[in-house]
Structure formats: C-alpha cells, structure tokens
Design a protein around this nucleic acid. Structure first.
Length: 435
RNA sequence: GACCCCUUCGUCUAGUGGCCUAGGACUCCAGGUUUUCAUCCUGGCAACACGGGUUCGAGUCCCGUAGGGGUCGCCA
C-alpha cells in the first residue's frame, strides 16, 4: 500500500515554524517512502480563514519547496459528509444526542467511547496506552449543527487515504479518541507518529508573543529556504551520522521516523545563522547577485548594475543572511555615510593623522593607475619611508573611505570606489574631524 | 489535581550492555592567518538529572525520586 501523509493546517494568520516542521517531516517521510504528500486546509473557522491567510500558507510551503501531490482538500467542502457520518453513528447507536451539561444550547451529538482500554504503537514514541476509565465520550457535532475537529479530521484522513498521520505531540491524547472513531466508522486505523514540540530560546513553548516564530519572519530576516529547511529537519531528527549540512536528496534518503527524537527541541538562532551562512557561500554567483540587487532595491538604493556587481563580489563571503547585505554596502552607494564615532576618536583624532592623510592623498593623486595593486604598493612604500606603523596609516584611510573599521579588504574596496571618490572622502573626513 | 510523555556538554545531537577516558556540530575562549572585521586553520572549556537495583560489566535494562512538558472545550 502506498504511503500517504498529509499536512493539515488551519490557515489562521501565519504559519508557525512548529507546524511547518511537521509539514517538513511529513514531506520527508512521504518522499523517502516513495509515497504521496497531501494538503488539507482545515478552514472551518470562517472568521479567521481568509483567502489571504490561505495564500500565506501556500506561499510558505512553496518557498520551502514542499510540493504537494494531488488536489488540495478544503475542509469546508466536506461538511455534509461529516454530518452524514454522524447520522450513521447515531443510527448504529455508536453516538447519542444530549443537551450536554444542560446548558439549554440544544442537543449535540456525542460519540460513545467503546469502554475498552486502548493502545497503539507510535512511530516515534513507541507503545502508548490508556485505560478505559480515563477516556470519556466526546462531542462530534455541536448543538449548532457543525462538526467538531475530531470527526472532521478523522473523516477527511479516511477520505484522503492517509496511511501515516505525523503530527504534533499535543495530539497524543486525541489519538485514542481518533482510533475509536476510525473503528466505529469501519475504517482502517492509520499509523500515528507524534513529534515533540519545538520551544523558544527560553525553553518555553512558542507563544503568540514570540514574534519570530512564523515562517515569513525567517524569510524577512534573510534566511534562505534551503537553510531553514535543513535546520528544521535536523531539529528533532538526525541521520545517525555526523552529517549536518545535507541536500534535500540526502535528507529524503536518510529520513526515518525511528530516528526522530521524542523530547522537545530548542531553537538556536545562532546555529541557524551559521547554517544559513554555509548555504549563502554555496549560492551560485548569479543567484547571490540577484538577491543582493533585490535587497538594494528594498533599501531604496538605485545602483548601476556593473558597479553593484563589483561591490557584491567584495562582500560575498562575509554575508551570513540576505538581510546582512544592505547594511554592509551602504558606503559604496552613498558618499554621505555615517562614521563610527568611537573609531573616529580612537584612530582619527590623533596627532599626525591629518598630516598622514594629506600625504596619502598626494600619493593617490600622483598614481598613474588607481587599482588594487598600485594603491597596495603605494601605501606599503609610504609606510616604509615614513616609518609610521601600518595600522597608523591603514586605519585612518579605512575610516575616511568607509566610516567604519571593519569590512572588505581596503585596496579592492578603493579600486571599486575609484580615485575620485576616495580623494573626496579623504577631504570630507579631514574637514569633518581634523580641522 | 487526574491521565500521559520526556530527561547525554549552554543548544542541536551520536550512542540500542563491553568499541565511551562519552563522539560531532553550533556557541564561547585561546593561538595562528588577515591592515581591520568576517572567513579560514589549530587547540581548549563543557554532559550521561538523582537514588537504588539487574549484570563480570550500564549512558545503554528495571524500579523509584526529582525536574520539565502535554492533555483534560459544543478550539483546532
């Protein structure tokens, strides 16, 4: 029998990374088994399930490369089937009507638990069981006539032919109810596997207040989909050897439920950032440039493509996330950049620096060509002749040119900026701080 | 409170009774490379929650304790 898994989110606002990780595991398992990965949109909460929310969900899946097999099933289209099933259970005496709690809301349909102990083997947690005494009957159709999650969920899983239900830990208790429902409905009970939850850096469950727990947030923060996918896949699963950076094919090949962890995992942004950096470095140059250009446009920088390309080459290997790019290249595109005031006091506002900069400027003006090699040689010669330390010359020049102490190598930077701009910047710096 | 689950470095994990003086990765620290920062290289710190068993031998099996989590809706 062909394996079928599914992702069944309710499209209410944003997609939480915990949910998305469940989707990833379902996808990985299906692909590993040569089965199918289906999507069911549990959109019965009319208030919150807007078209925009559904689109956000689809976009997030698409971004992460979670391709879905078959048609998407929208739960709202299934309501009549759910109700028919409830009627059937009622007619067979497997459910009954009652004004539960005597609230006067009217009668709802309640499923009768079979009254026997229940157990199943969880694909991740192993054998799980529950005594009959600890399981109560539960509502499957509300007094307002709408089906409850348990009924709808089970019925739709049957409809979609789901063989493996891989979902969050919080559904473990529901599973005993669901198994009883499958049996009452005369359907085969699928395999279940429950993933531990992921928690925030404080070790607490992600709550609505953790602003950075949505897939879209990671995208905005400049993480690459492949990196986020890889990181999330490894958060609670390991291939069993020391591999960490893995291609999708490698993950599909190695993925098994048995190798999933059964305890909660904590998200570590530092490791995600590291992993993202690894993926950034592996990006083809053209792809990196396209991303960087988009970042520039977002930052409102209108750049000459050829010039921008040179700049990107300079920063390429120091970028960890896409979001690092724009702040890193500001001074390449604006002559009116900010200075690191602390560095200015430390490196610039010292005796002799004005003189040094004047001499450097004079040297630059006389250079036949102004490129990496010539400026490199000229400054080295100057350092030697003047007897000044290397740092005493380089630091002020770097500050004058970029306003900061860190960044790409100075000589290539100056070549990209060009002689005119470098000279102007030396003048501007002297004017601002040394007169 | 009841029921269920979980527990290896700070974090993610390897480990399925001897290969464990517990391995890898991230972080952090030190040194090297680099004009600077990042990268890169080398090295280092750092864990089997606790207590009992079982066994010739336990991180690995059993029991208990503690801590953490989940679930107890006419939410999903």
């Amino acid at each position: 029998m062909k394996v079928r898994t599914r992702f069944a989110p309710s499209p209410t606002g944003n997609v939480h990374i915990g949910n998305m990780r469940a989707a990833i595991y379902n996808w990985l398992f299906a692909r590993h088994m040569g089965g199918e990965f289906l999507l069911r949109v549990e959109d019965t909460d009319i208030e919150r399930s807007t078209p925009e929310a559904i689109q956000t969900l689809l976009d997030a899946m698409d971004w992460l490369g979670l391709d879905v097999d078959g048609e998407h099933l929208y739960q709202t289209t299934r309501q009549q089937a759910h109700l028919d099933a409830a009627e059937m259970l009622l007619s067979k005496g497997l459910a009954y009507k009652e004004d539960k709690g005597g609230t006067g809301q009217g009668e709802c349909v309640i499923f009768r638990m079979p009254g026997t102990d229940s157990s199943f083997v969880d694909g991740i947690k192993g054998p799980l069981s529950k005594a009959a005494a600890n399981m109560q009957d539960f509502v499957i159709v509300r007094s307002n006539g709408t089906p409850v999650f348990h009924l709808a969920n089970v019925l739709d899983d049957i409809e979609q032919g789901i063989t493996h239900v891989i979902r969050g830990d919080d559904h473990v208790e529901n599973t005993f109810r669901h198994i009883a429902l499958y049996q009452a409905l005369g359907a085969d009970v699928p395999n279940f596997a429950h993933l531990p939850m992921i928690v925030n850096a404080q070790g607490k469950p992600y709550s609505k207040r953790d602003g950075d727990a949505f897939v879209g947030d990671f995208r905005e923060k400049g993480f690459l989909p492949d990196a986020l996918f890889n990181y999330l896949a490894l958060l609670g699963w390991s291939p069993g050897d020391d591999r960490e950076i893995m291609t999708r094919e490698e993950m599909v090949e190695a993925f098994t439920l048995a190798r999933c962890q059964s305890s909660a995992a904590q998200v570590d942004l530092k490791k995600l950032t590291w992993m993202n950096g690894e993926y950034m470095q592996k990006l083809p140059a053209a792809e990196f440039e396209a991303m960087a250009s988009a970042e520039l446009r977002k930052a409102g920088i209108d750049a000459d493509p050829a010039y921008a390309q040179k700049v990107f080459g300079l920063i390429r290997e120091r970028v960890k996330t896409v979001a690092d790019i724009a702040p890193m290249v500001g001074y390449f595109f604006s002559d009116d950049f900010e200075y690191d005031e602390k560095a200015v006091r430390k490196k610039l506002q010292k005796d002799g620096v004005a003189d040094t900069l004047a001499k450097v400027k004079a040297i630059f003006e006389l250079l036949a060509t102004f490129d990496e090699a010539s400026t490199d040689k000229a400054l080295h010669d100057f350092v030697e002749e003047s007897g000044l330390g290397f740092g005493a010359v380089m630091a002020p020049v770097r500050l004058a040119v970029s306003g900061i102490q860190s960044g790409p190598e100075l000589f290539p930077t100056m070549e990209v900026l060009g002689r005119e701009r470098v000279l102007q910047r030396i003048d501007r710096t002297v004017e601002l701080y040394l007169t």
